[in-house]
Design a protein around this nucleic acid. Structure first.
Lengths: 221, 221
DNA sequence: ATCAGAACTTGACGGCCGTCAAGAAATTCA
DNA sequence: TGAATTTCTTGACGGCCGTCAAGTTCTGAT
C-alpha cells in the first residue's frame, strides 16, 4: 500500500497541501481486516476516527432486544466515528468488513488537534455529519411512517438513481437489506415477488434487479 | 430583549470572548413567533442557522405519504439547521413553535465565515451534531426493531431520568408523542393504560405520570 | 363559571407483517 | 466440479397495532 494513499483519498482533507498531508500521514495508523471480520475493540480502540481506505464496511447497531440494525454501508473514502470526536459518548454501534478492507485510524486527541490547526477539516467533517443526519432523519421518518412495501420500493429506486442504471445488483444480502429497512428477509422476498407480478421489476439470477416502471414503483404505498 | 442575550446563551459560542460575541451579535437577526406558528420560509430563508433564544420548537419531517414525524423538540439554547451549513441540501423538515418563541438566525455565509475565523465554533457544532446523530441512530434502531410498547416504556424512563424525578408531566400532546414514537395517539393511550394495570406507572390528571417500577418498565418488550 | 372545541379513551375490526417451517436455489470451498 | 453450507423462497398462521367510531374528559376563551 502506497504511503499517503489513505489521507489523500479522503474528502475531509481535500483542502490541505502536500506537507500538511505528510504531517497527518505520520499520525495515522493502518490496519487491514479480512472479509467478515469485526472492526472493533481489539487493537483499535473506540476513541478513534476511522477512514475506510479500501473496501466496504457495514455499521450496525444493537437494539435492546438483541436485534441488529444496519445503519450505514461505508465505502472507500468514507469516515466513521462520531464517538471519536467527543468524550462521554458511548459507542453502541460496531463495524464489520463486507470484503477485505483497509482502514486508517486517527486518535481522538490527534484529530482534535488537527481540527484546531486546520479549520477546513472541521467544516468538511460538518458536511459529512450533516449529510448523514439528513439521511438518518429520512430513514427514521421512513421506517416510522411508511409500509415495508413503500420502503423497499423507495430503496430500489434510490439505489438505481445513485448508480444511474435501471439494472443493478443488490449490494447486500437480503438479511442485511432487511435489517437496514427494518423488516425481515422473508418480507423482502415476498415484496420483490409482488413487484415482479405487478410488472414493476424483473428479477434475474445473482440478486440482479431490472426496473421496468420506476414511476409506478414510487407510487407504492 | 437585552442585546447579546441570544449569542451568549448558546453553548456553541461558549469559548468566545466578549468582543467576539459583539461581532457575532451584529450579524444576528432576531425573530419572534407566537405559539403555534410555523418557523419556515416567510422572512426566514432556509439557508440560515437558527438559535432558539427562548421557547420551544417542534421540528417535523413530512413523509412521502403525507404523515409527519416529530424529529426533535428544541429547547432554549438549541440550534437547528444542518441545511444552513451546506449547499445542495434540500430541507425536508419544518419547525413549529410550541410556545411563544424567540429565535435568532445567522445566514449560512456569515456562519461559515465565523467557523473559519473561530475554529472552536465548528468543534462545538460538531459536538451538537454528534449527539444528534447518536440520538437519531438510536431512534432509528428503536422504531425499526422494537414494539410500540417497548418504545413508550423507554421514552418514559428516559424522560424521567433526564428530569431526575419519578413524577413528571408529559411535555407533549399525545398526538405529538405519537408521531415522535412512530405510532398513534390511540396506541399510546392503550399502552399507558396497560402499564397502569400492570402497576408500573400511575396516571394523574394533566398528563402527569408517576413511575412505580422503572426496572420492570425497562424489561418491557 | 360556562360552553365550545380539542384532546383523549375505549371498543371492535381488519390487515400488514413477523414467525416458524420446509423445500429450492445459490454460493463457497476443497 | 461436486458437495456442504448458507441463502432464499413460499406457505400457513397469528398477533400487534393502525383505523374508524362514539363517548368522555380536558382546556381555554368569553
Amino acid at each position: 500500500m502506497a504511503e499517503h494513499e489513505c489521507v489523500r483519498l479522503v474528502p475531509i482533507f481535500s483542502e490541505l497541501g502536500s506537507e500538511q498531508l505528510d504531517t497527518i500521514e505520520s499520525i495515522v495508523r493502518h490496519h487491514h481486516y479480512p472479509a467478515g471480520s469485526t472492526l472493533f475493540g481489539a487493537d483499535d480502540p473506540l476513541d478513534s476516527l476511522m477512514i475506510v481506505a479500501n473496501g466496504q464496511v457495514k455499521v450496525y447497531q444493537l437494539a435492546a432486544n438483541g436485534r441488529e440494525q444496519l445503519l450505514y454501508l461505508l465505502q472507500t473514502g468514507d469516515i466513521d466515528g462520531e464517538a471519536a470526536l467527543f468524550e462521554n459518548q458511548r459507542r453502541t454501534s460496531f463495524g464489520e468488513a463486507l470484503v477485505p478492507t483497509d482502514v486508517c485510524s486517527i486518535r481522538r486527541s490527534d484529530f482534535q488537534d488537527l481540527m484546531q490547526k486546520y479549520p477546513s477539516i472541521s467544516i468538511n467533517v460538518l458536511n459529512v455529519f450533516g449529510k448523514r443526519l439528513s439521511q438518518l432523519e429520512r430513514q427514521t421518518t421512513s421506517t416510522a411512517t411508511e409500509s415495508v412495501e413503500a420502503r423497499l420500493a423507495n430503496y430500489i429506486t434510490e439505489t438505481a438513481a445513485a448508480l444511474k442504471t435501471d439494472t443493478f445488483k443488490l449490494p447486500l444480502k437480503k438479511k442485511d437489506l432487511a435489517t437496514f429497512l427494518g423488516t425481515t428477509p422473508e418480507s423482502i422476498s415476498r415484496k420483490l415477488a409482488l413487484f415482479e407480478r405487478q410488472g414493476l421489476i424483473t428479477q434475474k439470477p445473482g440478486k440482479v434487479i431490472e426496473i421496468n416502471d420506476a414511476d409506478q414503483l414510487l407510487l407504492t404505498e
